[in-house]
Each structure stands twice: as C-alpha cells, then as structure tokens.
Design a protein around this nucleic acid. Structure first.
Lengths: 228, 228
DNA sequence: GCAAATGTATTGCATAAACCATATTTTAAC
DNA sequence: GTTAAAATATGGTTTATGCAATACATTTGC
C-alpha cells in the first residue's frame, strides 16, 4: 500500500471540482491513516472537515441509549465521510470507524467552504450527492420500519456485497462481524447468528469466520421480496 | 382562504433566491390546489417539478409490499415537497398526499435548474437543506430501528405537535388518523390504538376523534428517552 | 341522501424476535 | 506469550407486537 494513494482524480472532490483547483487541493489536503477499529470522528464532536476515502473500509454509525448503535452505512474507497456536518449544526451527528486499515484525504471545513463558494458546479454536484443519499436513507427507513428481520439481514448481506465486492474466491473483501451485520440490520447478534446458520445450511451463503461468500444472490433477493 | 397565498417571500425558493429572480418566478410559477386526501404525486411517477407548500398539510410516504406504507414526513406551509426527485433518477422515490385542503406553488424542473445554474447561493442553501434533511432521516432511521414501539408512537405525537402546532384549546391544528400515526411510527393501527388509550387514561393526552391534545409533553419525552 | 369505502373500537391468540445465561473461541494488547 | 476483551456459539424463556375477527362509526362520492 502506497503512502499516499491520492491520484488527484478518483475522489469525489477531485473528480467534480474545476481542474485548476487541484493544484490548491494538493497543498491544502492532508492524508490521514487509520488503523483497523480506529475512530475517525465521534457523534457530538465538533465538525472540523470532511474525509474522502482512498482505501480501506469505514462504517458510519449512530448511538442510542447504552450500547445500542445503528450502522448508517458502509463505505469504501472513493466515498465521502463526514459530509453530514455541513448542515446548520456544527457537531457530527454520527460517528465513523475504520473497519480495516484505511487512508483518507482530509479537507478542512474552511477550505471546503472556499471551494463551494468559488466552484458553482461542484456545489451542484454535492447537492445531487446529498439528494441521492437522502433517497437511500429513506429507502432504508422504510426497510427498517416495515421489513421483517430476516429480510433486513438478507438485504444487509446484499449491500455488503455491493459496497465491498468479492475476491477471486467469491468472498467479500472486507470481513464484517455478525455484530456489525446486526447493527446494520437493526437487530441483535443472536438473531443474525441463527439466521446465518440456516442460510449456510441451505447453501445460500458460505462463512469462514468473518469472511462471507454469497452463493445464491437470487435466493437472498427472494427473501428480501417476501419479507412481509 | 385566498386564491393565491403566495407572498413571494415566505417559501424556501423566494426566501433564498436572488431578489431579482422573483419577477421571473411570479411568471413561471403555477399555483395548484389540492383537496383533502388528493394525491400530489405518486412513487414511480416521472418527476416534473418541485412544490412549495403555502397552506394546508401534506404527508410524504413510501410503499412496501401490499398495502404497507411508511410515512416519511409530515409537512406544513413553507415546506418543500418533491425535492427528492432532483437526484440522478427521474422518478419520484416517494408519494405525497394532502392531509387537508392545501395550496402549493409548482416550479417545473426545467425552470428550477435554470435558477440553480444561475443562482449560486440558492444552490448552496438548497444543499444545506438537503444536508439537514439527511440528518433528520438518519435520526429517524435510528429511532425506527432501535427504539421500541411505544417510544416511536410518543415521538410521532411530539413531531406532529412540532410540525402542525395547536389551536387555542391546545388541540393540534391538523387531524391525523391513527392509521397515519401507525404508518409514521412504523407499527400497526391496533398498537397505536392500545397505546393512545393508555395515554388517555394516564391523562397524558386527550383525544376527540382525530383531534389530539397533548397535556404532558414532558411525560411523552420521558417515554421516548426510556424506550429501550 | 344513500351507498361504499374508510377509519375506529375491541378482543384474544400466536409468534417472531429480543432477552438471558453460559461456554468457547478468536482477536487484540502489553 | 500471557491476559484481557471481543466475538462466537447455542439453548431456553419471555414478551412485545403483529394478526385475525368482528362490530360500529364516520366520511366522501355520486
């Protein structure tokens, strides 16, 4: 893994800003490394900037009483993390934690606002990005509220597949704990454990510890469709 | 109720665009009336524009298998409806239905994009609006996933109070069916019915058909806090 | 003004899924 | 390399909540 994976073209910022800005970005940006399990920022922290993920994997999550948490989304390279802070409030409404060793480009809020003020079309694209994030959030809202647990777990597996992809043997590239699957599906560890076991028995998936392989994507989709 | 409630200043568009644009807006806009229960647009319809609500009340909702639906949000005057269509896809991801006789200003997508291209700061404000909507959506995601039903119903009542306000006697200005409360809280009619009954017995609320009065807001908040 | 549709009221019953308890294995830390 | 801390594994019990059934009331369309 290179020390600086930034190619000044693949992240959302570089891909969407006016090319001339890149010279400024390369000076202003800061590359930060995160170890597996490391907290990137915490719900309630003061917002200081925005992150563009180069490599690794990150979960964005939100707390509720005691130890309960909901994972809002999983992100991979190219994704934006910390954009929720751009709204009125100046505190992060969510936390972000690295699921694997990760590298991110950090842009301070001050600099980001300079870009936004100067680059009209970047602002427009960022607005579109928010809009599509909002659509996804509402889809998930509906699923969490109306879909039964098995459907939500199946859906979680499909989303993990989509976000992280697979290696040569068909296993997902990022190992995810059952607890994290539960936290994304809005259920408990035990329920995930039991359901993954029946999925394994039915040969719909294979598990090797935290490494998961989906054998029958269509059957998972069927479970989602039939989930109430 | 006046025929045209638009004062060219109170809606999100007029309040945030460059003043000069208002002259154009007044020509391009279209005032539309909706009867109670009337569908404004339907999930899957082609997006043709955006609505700014002048008066009345609207629910934005999303379908799931059969007759199941989740109400995404309730809106009152001043609010934007239909903005979800601005993203990549060109189909509305949600439906909108008038809860009471309502008036809205309709702006076609073509004209809206003209404004967005020309008015940098309007685009910026709209982006901020999306960002705050996203935060709300994620908060609700968490609640739907982790909070138990009683807390969600209590939360629903508090949100209705916040959005619709009360009349002189303390009753909410917009009557809402228990089915709609259920659809917002992500539960069934029966559960809402049972819980509202105990709330009435405990004198925390008063109900007169669809008209609800909250007597002890603090007790509702306590229920929300203690909901798991 | 009447019919049809929609919403309300009310109950018991069934059950999915959370909760509890406890043992073992894996992973991380010093 | 040992220990602590997560994560996994697995059963049994409990309970919150959805579901079915049925009667009545209210709204809305024609």
């Amino acid at each position: 893994m290179s020390t600086d994976a930034c190619d000044l073209s693949s992240c959302f910022l570089c891909a969407n800003c006016i090319p001339e800005w890149r010279e400024v970005i390369v000076v202003k940006k800061e590359t930060i490394h995160f170890k597996k399990g490391e907290l990137i920022f915490k719900e309630g922290d003061k917002v200081n900037g925005i992150y563009f993920l180069y490599s690794g994997a990150v979960k964005v999550h939100k707390q509720w009483v005691d130890q309960k948490e909901l994972i809002i989304r999983f992100t991979r390279q190219g994704d934006i993390v910390g954009h929720r802070g751009l709204a009125a409030g100046d505190l992060y409404p969510v936390s972000a934690t690295a699921l694997a060793a990760s590298e991110a480009c950090f842009i301070s809020n001050v600099f980001l606002e300079t870009i936004l003020k100067a680059d009209h079309s970047f602002t427009y694209r960022l607005m579109q990005f928010y809009s599509s994030e909002l659509q996804k959030a509402e889809m998930r809202m509906r699923n969490l509220a109306l879909m039964e647990v098995k459907g939500r777990i199946a859906e979680t597996l499909l989303e993990l597949l989509e976000v992280f992809g697979t290696n040569a043997e068909g296993y997902m590239t990022v190992p995810v704990t059952r607890q994290d699957i539960a936290a994304y599906a809005g259920t408990t560890y035990e329920t995930v454990f039991k359901f993954l076991k029946t999925l394994t028995t039915d040969k719909i998936i294979n598990t090797d510890g935290k490494h998961i392989k989906i054998n029958a994507e269509n059957k998972l989709r069927k479970i989602v469709k039939n989930a109430k």
